[in-house]
Design a protein around this nucleic acid. Structure first.
Length: 498
RNA sequence: GCGCCUUUAGCUCAGUCGGUAGAGCAGCGGCCUUUUAAGCCGUUGGUCCCGGGUUCGAGUCCCGGAGGGCGCACCA
């Protein structure tokens, strides 16, 4: 634990004195067990919105609990702000009504203390709906001082490291986290309405596969074996397609041992969903409906999201463009199919762009796309038809075997989802894994070791299937207009210091 | 990994040309029966991120380091 500075120690000491005073009057904050909460702040504000200044509803008593965020005492009366999970409610208390002993307790309350109060609603002279307190109990004491009541917590590092403090004093942050929870619940509800099961698959794996990323490595003591944290849920989920579950999804934590920036976190939440007998076009319809629905929820029925100084429209249908057409369009026709689908041609384009050479054809294509096309994808856009070299798990097009039936949805220059018709031909899959072995041997550490049992699963027969992965955190960023992925995570990873 | 910015009281921030550290809030002591960043009077509180260096003298200048933010690189 960090040592306290002298000033801070004095503040804590003052609060401990108030704690002792409360205990001496039999009001030990830490002795409280439970409190019967009859209403929330939001409920009382809603219910008594009709009161006019000076009017009260003293016939109806309510109890409410929360944290006292400020106190304004004027001799024998006092106002305070009480915050619960739904918002803030002003409290009003008079010494002559609650008695000296209770009012002394009130005087020993510090900003941040937890209390339960009973009283009735009225509207104050200045028009604020307020609970007139007739009795209260102290339910917990804040020994540590809260940040500045006006400016709140501005220190970004402290906000992430002590998120509990940030959440106490920053309503905006709390609102984002609550909206995140609502949106994920809404995602589940929407998906469930299509008859999907929610499943959970292991995060600890012997070989992390299904994506290209460096894994976290750990030890399993009981097995005395090295394990990896999953980098995708894809392969296990498709085993469940083989198993016959047909429609299911997983919303789970994924771990990638790579860079950290405003759109990348080492652990993040991914939605992966699979539907037997769907193809990529079915998935695109579903994806578009899901996103449009979530935009509607986030904006109270709207179709536009704020993004920086602009707004982005999510009115359906979203834009659609073929991968190769997008490359051609944004290069003035210079990046042709022939050049892109040839490994040497792609490397040559990299040189033209001044990008260092890539270890593989697939890597080169991703670099080119990222540089040339992605910055233009502000409005929601489905980019369709990816080269097979960047899609080792997707099914080739019937009439164009160099291209797979896949799309990625981009928005605000971020990749939001990635979907394809799944490759279910075990021989083709085996061949593509074998090609990856070569790439891995050539030094691309992000290429996973092949999961040969997955190929064996395909040999039992997998129906035609479409699958999708959606980066939940990035989607929440979009829906809540946050510029950093850390701002949609409760406890973002920070370096340990000391 | 590279660049830019940043770190001063519990919190939010000033700190000039290098001259011995300031405000507001919070806290503490008063006054105050409808306030809301309550108000008024008084007052406590400092490892200026850490370590070196230059200097008579460093929060300030120089070097090194740490944490954080942003950008680049990296990142299916």
């Amino acid at each position: 634990m960090d040592e306290l500075g002298k000033t801070e120690a004095a503040l804590v000491a003052a609060r401990r004195e108030n704690l002792a005073a409360l205990r001496s009057r039999g009001s030990d904050p830490f002795a409280a067990r439970r409190f019967e909460v009859e209403a929330t702040a939001a409920e009382l504000l809603e219910r008594y919105g009709f009161l006019v200044p000076g009017q009260d509803a003293s016939a109806e008593g309510w109890s409410i609990a929360g944290r006292m965020l400020s106190k304004r005492t004027m001799g024998k009366t006092s106002f305070a702000d009480l915050a619960d999970r739904t918002g803030k409610l002003q409290l009003y208390i008079r010494k002559e009504e609650v008695g000296e002993r209770a009012f002394d307790d009130w005087g020993d309350l510090d900003r941040g203390d937890l209390i339960g109060v009973r009283g009735y609603m009225f509207r104050s002279k200045l028009g604020e709906p307020t609970l007139h307190v007739t009795s209260f109990s102290v339910l917990g004491k804040a020994l540590m001082p809260l940040p500045d009541k006006w400016h709140g917590l501005q220190d970004v590092e402290k906000r992430y490291r002590q998120r509990y403090v940030d959440l106490i004093v920053s309503p905006d942050v709390r609102d984002v986290m609550i909206m995140r929870s609502r949106l994920i619940a809404e995602m589940r509800r929407f998906i469930d309405s299509y008859g999907f099961y929610e499943v959970e698959t292991p995060t600890l794996l012997h070989v992390a596969g299904g994506a290209a990323a460096r894994p976290f490595v750990t030890e399993c003591n009981a097995l005395d074996q090295t394990m990896q944290l999953r980098i995708a849920t894809e392969l296990n989920l498709k085993r469940l397609i083989v198993a016959g579950l047909e429609r299911f999804y997983e919303i789970g934590r994924i771990f990638r041992n790579e860079g950290i920036d405003t759109t990348h976190s080492p652990e993040f939440t991914m939605l992966e969903l699979y539907a037997a007998y769907w193809d990529v076009s079915d998935m695109m319809e579903f994806n578009e409906a899901l996103i449009a629905h979530l935009v509607s929820v986030a904006t109270d029925g709207g179709t536009e999201l704020p993004h920086g100084d602009a707004t982005i429209s999510f009115a359906r249908p979203f834009a659609r463009i073929e991968y190769l057409d997008a490359m051609a369009r944004h290069s003035g026709g210079a990046y042709t199919r022939e050049r892109l689908l040839d490994s040497g041609g792609a490397q040559h384009i990299l040189r033209e762009l001044g990008i260092p050479p890539s270890p593989s054809h697939s890597h080169a294509l991703d670099k080119i796309f990222e540089r040339v096309v992605e910055p233009h994808l502000t409005a929601p856009t489905f980019v369709t038809g990816y080269p097979v070299v960047v899609s080792p798990l997707a099914k080739r097009r019937e009439n164009d075997p160099d291209i797979v039936d896949r799309y990625e949805l981009f928005c605000a220059s971020m990749e939001i989802s990635n979907a394809f018709t799944e490759l279910n031909d075990p021989d083709d899959q085996r061949a593509r894994f074998a090609a990856q072995v070569a790439e891995r041997a050539a030094g691309n550490e992000e290429i996973p070791e092949p999961d040969w049992d997955y190929v064996r699963a395909l040999e039992y027969g997998m129906p035609p299937t479409a699958g999708i992965g959606i980066g939940v955190d990035r989607l929440i960023m979009l829906l809540t207009a946050q510029r950093s992925i850390r701002d949609v995570m409760l406890f973002p990873l920070q370096r340990q210091h000391g």
